[in-house]
Nucleic acid binder design. Structure first.
Length: 512
RNA sequence: GGUCGCGUAGCUCAGUUGGCAGAGCACCUGACUUUUAAUCAGGCGGUCUUGGGUUCGAGUCCCAACGCGAUCACCA
């Protein structure tokens, strides 16, 4: 927000009213509007569960003993109904909502005044027996009530929460308290990632952290973000993948390693792409892409089990049953089934390329053309309700992958698709240093000037391979996309707390 | 980056053929001891995203910019 906008907001009438009210409370009732430490708080869900009908009934009898459980709770005011000598308000915390009933006769004059004039958004602490109203609403009958934090900004519409997607992403904190399902999603994200970590640890994988700022951005083909280190006066790139560093760890002698962390790719933004995204990469020495396939199926299932008892989870119109074994189909079979001719049939592939008006279809390498056709019209033929491993990718589009011994056009690589999204990518790693050097060199030769500017041969990685990397399986999993699937959110922006947004106050210098 | 759609009060939205800027909620004042999006009475609130243009007159029509969304491209 610009200073001007902040100023406008602070000058608005609604804010001014809240400031005035706060000042009155400070002057007249000696209220400190910013609160202090509070011990012994009970969550709202906990407090609600402590309600006892017997104790409630007994407390209403003439001369009955009041042994209703006492609770101390805190939350943000989301509803407020003042009725003269009685005020009802509903507060919210991350576990749910609970009504607080404030009777003038049970509270100090000051506390009752504050309660009856409370604003939506104020954070309060209330203490008292947990009981119910005449209509049966479970509530805390407050005998102590204090302001914990004055909210100076009025909340959006009180009943429906905010629906404007832009506002939800820009002011996530407002989205979170007005739309409880937002917190639910991010708690589930945490649960899923914890389940995945636990699954990896159980499998003997060691979590490591490798550089996010790299002198050479390798391990994938994306465009990197670039930055600069002042003291060393060198350019640095935000990593596009941790791959080349994780493999060095296998060279060093670690058997099973994984990393869950952010990658940064300077590419387009879409429902499935945020410029920074969370990726799990795992490498297992003496494994191959088959071991990684089994690992991945178990991992996705562990995540699903952590957030869903039935493990049947809807994603838009699609329902996926994660109990069932995942499908697998080879790249070539899928291609032939979708198009009616083999991907080895160069003439038909060439013809199809022209038909689809694929860029450079006349002189593109056969396998690159196959890949373009595959992306254009074969991927969509995968049943979205069935998690599907597509295996045996062409080597030409898999420069870090070991080719098949019997047919070096194909490689030991698979990708996992669920609901039309690419979720994971895995290969039997190439550990022949000479072949790897050749692949890198070919890749660089094919690159245009712009790509050459940031893609440089990683000599040290080749050196590491010469030292010797054991045969290994490698895996990358798009964690955000897994969370999308397992929480039923169709946009990556709904599973990333603070998705990248264009600044609203962009002052653009016109350079003519 | 291309195409299409949207942008009106704090929020959600209406605004007719181009003719005084509207509603509900929120907010302010008052009443009310069992409310459930409480109710009742009264009141406040606008750079119609921004900048140009057409017109006697523009929220409305035209052009451009900005932001958001959808979609395509890009992303092995």
């Amino acid at each position: 927000m610009t200073e001007q906008q902040v100023q406008q907001q602070e000058e608005s009438q609604l804010v001014a009213a809240r400031r005035a009210k706060m000042q009155r409370w400070m002057d007249d009732y000696n209220v400190y509007p910013w609160g202090n430490r509070v011990d012994g708080l009970t969550s709202l869900a906990d407090a609600r569960s402590q309600f006892s009908q017997e104790a409630h009934d007994a407390s209403k009898e003439e001369g009955g003993v009041d042994d209703r459980p006492r609770v101390k709770v805190a939350g943000r005011c989301i509803q407020h109904r003042a009725m003269g000598k009685l005020t009802f308000l509903v507060i919210r915390d991350e576990t749910g909502d609970l009504q607080i009933s404030c009777s003038k006769s049970a509270l100090s004059t000051e506390a009752f005044k504050v309660a009856s004039k409370l604003d939506y958004g104020d954070i309060v602490v209330a203490e008292g027996p947990i009981g119910a109203t005449q209509k049966g609403e479970i509530c805390v009958w407050a005998d102590d009530f204090t302001l914990a934090c004055k909210s100076l900004v009025p909340p959006p519409e009180k009943f429906h929460g905010i629906s404007d997607a832009e506002l939800r992403y820009r002011q996530r904190y407002v989205d979170m308290y007005t739309n409880p399902e937002t917190i639910e999603t991010f708690k589930n994200r945490s649960i899923i990632i914890r389940a995945i970590r636990s699954y990896m640890e159980t499998g003997g994988f060691v979590e490591v952290e490798t550089p996010m700022m790299q002198p050479l951005a390798g391990g994938a083909a994306a465009r990197p973000f670039s930055t600069h280190h002042n003291a060393l006066d060198i350019p640095l790139f935000l990593r596009i993948a941790p791959e080349l560093y994780l493999k060095r760890l296998l060279v060093g002698g670690m058997r099973k390693v994984y990393e869950i962390n952010r990658n940064f790719r300077n590419e387009g933004i879409s429902k499935k792409h945020n410029p920074e995204f969370t990726m799990l990469e795992a490498y297992e020495a003496f494994g191959d892409c088959e071991t990684m396939l089994e690992l991945t199926e178990g991992m996705v299932r562990a995540g699903a089990a952590a957030v869903s008892e039935s493990m049947c989870i809807s994603f838009g119109e699609i329902e996926v049953d994660y109990n069932k074994p995942f499908d697998r189909v080879s790249y070539g079979d899928l291609f032939e089934k979708a198009l009616g001719f083999s991907m080895d049939d160069e003439a038909s592939v060439r013809a199809k390329g022209s038909e689809l008006h694929i860029d450079g279809s006349d002189n593109l390498n056969h396998w690159l053309l196959v890949s373009a056709i595959f992306d254009a019209c074969v991927e969509d033929t995968i049943d979205p309700t069935r998690p599907t491993f597509v295996t045996d990718y062409p080597s030409a589009i898999s420069p870090l992958t070991r080719p098949h011994a019997e047919c070096d056009a194909l490689s030991h690589r698979w990708e996992l698709f669920i609901c039309g999204m690419e979720i994971a990518n895995s290969y039997t790693e190439l550990n022949d240093p000479d072949l790897q050097l050749q692949r890198f060199t070919e890749q660089l030769d094919g690159a245009d000037d712009e790509i050459q500017a940031f893609r440089t041969l990683d000599d040290d990685f080749i050196h590491a391979l010469r030292v010797g990397m054991p045969p290994a399986g490698g895996l990358g999993v798009g964690i955000d996309r897994v969370v999308m699937l397992l929480t039923g959110n169709e946009s990556i922006r709904d599973v990333v707390l603070f998705p990248l947004m264009k600044p609203q106050d962009s002052t653009h210098e016109e350079t003519d």
